[in-house]
């Protein structure tokens, strides 16, 4: 299966990745080859097979409803690219 340039640009946008036209040209055969490999799955009959999302079928563990995390806002914001006064700064969203 081959994706069109338009498909690739749409996927890139959904993934919030900027791709140049040059990259799209390079990605088309690469993703095409990967998709061809993936199509190999079609050779397997999976009717009546339940999908397995997790290798060990364990139930989600519950814990007591207790506060276990302390507020570490300052620590976490110290490593932010642009944060001040407890706020993360991004370009203007609403005029």
């Amino acid at each position: 299966m081959i994706l069109s340039d338009q498909d690739i640009k749409k996927i890139a946008h959904l993934a919030r990745i900027d791709v140049s036209d040059e990259q799209v040209t390079a990605l088309r055969p690469e993703l095409g080859k990967i998709l061809t490999m993936i199509e190999h799955m079609d050779s397997v009959d999976t009717q009546n097979v339940a999908p397995l999302s997790h290798p060990i079928e364990a139930n989600q563990r519950l814990r007591l409803d207790e506060v276990t995390e302390i507020n570490q806002r300052d620590t976490f914001q110290k490593i932010a690219p642009n944060a001040d006064h407890g706020l993360y700064f991004v370009p203007l969203v609403i005029e």
């Binding site: 097979v49 339940a50 397995l52």
Partner: peptide, 14 residues
């Protein structure tokens, strides 16, 4: 066809 199919194959592999 893609993700769910892969998870079913995962079940068969296990």
């Amino acid at each position: 066809a893609c993700y769910l199919k892969a998870q079913k194959i995962r079940c068969l592999i296990r």
